[in-house]
Design a protein around this nucleic acid. Structure first.
Lengths: 99, 99
DNA sequence: TCCATAGTTCGTATTTTATCGAACACCAGA
DNA sequence: TCTGGTGTTCGATAAAATACGAACTATGGA
């Protein structure tokens, strides 16, 4: 399997991050990951086909919003809180707080 | 000509707003409007066909990011600063500050 | 080694978005 | 009322995003 792509913190692109967050499903995913700290795909509780979930994880990951690490048979996803906050201060508060 | 659609402040939708801002051209438009206070389409200085500009204005307007008012022969566009700030505090600072 | 579980990748269909020329609507001033 | 400047709408096309079944990879445990 291909290694995951995680853009460097300095190269995070605002339009790209905003686009990743502009999908309701992904926004919900981000909120749940933020609340839990680290989550596997399955533990998210979003009822969608695996391939769809995988797609959304990829968009978030390649925009630099989440980081995915392999832990045995599962993939753990965490918010790149510090990287995002360092580059776009305040953005996470908006996204995690907003209704 | 059809009247402009401006969603009520309370109905602003975060995913929709983020989507409107996730296009580099629109993000640039928003920054210039913010810097100038109020701008006509032509005064934006973005070198694109009029129909393309009109499209982007519409996306921003219908997401609730800008308000368009008719002043004689021109259309003046302004950021809906208070409405956005009221609903998504901190978002504008991120968008206007971020590189 | 076989099996179940977790998740990715591929292929494709569908939908949405972006782009832009051309025609149109509106206003102001000559 | 004609004309030039502004900007919108329409229509067509192209590009991008979404959705998801099926096949595949990788891991841990029986």
């Amino acid at each position: 399997m291909r290694p995951f792509l995680h853009p460097a913190a300095e190269t995070l692109d605002l339009p790209r991050v905003l686009h990743a967050l502009s999908d309701p499903a992904r926004l919900e995913m981000v909120r749940r990951i933020a609340a839990a700290g680290e989550l596997t795909c399955g533990a998210l509780g979003v009822d969608r086909p695996k391939s769809s979930m995988s797609h959304h994880f990829r968009v978030l990951r390649e925009a630099g919003v989440i980081r995915t690490r392999v832990a045995g048979a599962v993939h753990l996803n965490a918010l790149r809180t510090e990287d995002i906050e360092g580059r776009f201060p305040g953005l996470l508060a908006v996204v995690l707080g907003g209704t």
